[in-house]
């Protein structure tokens, strides 16, 4: 008797969220931009077949033209195809690392916020520990310990990808955990949660239906910031020899390479900068839309 009713309720809830999301025009706009970017980097390299590493010394530092829509860099390589190719990695790294940071952070923060005493103390100790670790020596240690063995197990590219994503995500979950915990500490004492508790709602249900949706605001913000940070962090890692090989033009890397030519060839930096910005912007609008759609009290 009970089960079918519940399923019906869930379906209508999902539909409801989608209905609310669709009404959020900026969120739709963000979703469209993100889809365009993802589609661009996914199929773009098939359509725009200029090789990413074709060195042409006669076409160095050329501004955008029909032949090179984004211009060329100082080795005469076509920036458009480089951006398309590098975008795959940058977006994948950004989204995956963000997901790790958010999921780990939310779980740890939620557990710490709901439990008291030893569990909370231990989890916050763990957070403090990760906040204190000097990242550079630790990264060097990780490269040294795991790079070769991981390469052997899953192959060069996947190995590097997994390592980068885990490393970036692993260094960015702590603020999320502390934010979620703080939200939980405050929310779990609010009237509507007490009401649910009084009605005999289980702990899991309290969290899932009442506390978590209201704690998502900072999580979504952290998520968007983490995407940008991860895209840039990837390029930093490649300077430590941890990232992808130097000839793979991820967006962060192109931006870094362009910096010394900022006064003479500003377009070189403009394109990666704008693409990172647009990605972050669209993800954020989607996040805003999701949050509004999930907010049960908001009438839309």
């Amino acid at each position: 008797m009970v089960a079918p009713v519940r399923r019906a309720a869930t379906v209508s809830l999902t539909q409801d969220i989608w209905r609310r999301f669709k009404r959020h025009r900026l969120a739709l706009f963000g979703a469209v931009i993100l889809l365009v970017i993802i589609a661009g980097v996914a199929i773009g390299p098939w359509l725009w077949t200029v090789p990413i590493n074709e060195i042409d010394f006669n076409a160095r530092l050329k501004p955008p033209s029909w032949q090179h829509p984004f211009g060329t860099d100082d080795l005469g390589q076509d920036l458009f195809s480089r951006m398309l190719y590098g975008g795959r990695i940058s977006i994948a790294v950004g989204l995956a690392a963000m997901t790790i940071a958010i999921v780990v952070g939310t779980i740890i923060g939620a557990i710490a916020g709901m439990s008291r005493g030893l569990v909370d103390t231990f989890l916050m100790w763990l957070t403090d520990l990760f906040l204190s670790l000097p990242q550079l020596p630790l990264l060097l240690l990780i490269i040294y310990l795991f790079r070769d063995s991981l390469k052997k197990i899953v192959g060069a590219e996947t190995g590097v990808f997994i390592m980068i994503v885990v490393v970036i995500g692993g260094f960015r979950w702590m603020p999320v955990a502390r934010l979620v915990r703080a939200q939980f500490l405050s929310l779990r004492e609010k009237e509507f949660v007490e009401a649910a508790r009084a009605l005999g709602a289980s702990r899991l249900r309290q969290v899932a239906r009442h506390i978590l949706p209201n704690a998502l605001g900072p999580v979504i913000v952290a998520g968007t910031i983490d995407v940008a940070a991860a895209i840039i962090a990837e390029s930093t890692l490649s300077f430590l020899g941890l990232g992808f090989p130097p000839d793979i033009p991820t967006w962060g890397r192109v931006l870094f390479d362009a910096k010394d030519y900022l006064d003479t060839s500003p377009y070189w930096a403009l394109f990666p900068g704008t693409l990172i910005f647009l990605t972050v912007l669209s993800i954020n609008y989607i996040g805003d839309g999701l949050r509004d759609a999930l907010d049960p009290r908001r009438v839309l």
Binding site: I225, A228, I232, L255, F256, K259, I276, F277, V280, L281
Partner: peptide, 11 residues
């Protein structure tokens, strides 16, 4: 703000 955190400080 989006521009602010999309651009790294080295830039």
């Amino acid at each position: 703000t989006f521009i602010g955190f999309s651009l790294p400080t080295f830039f």
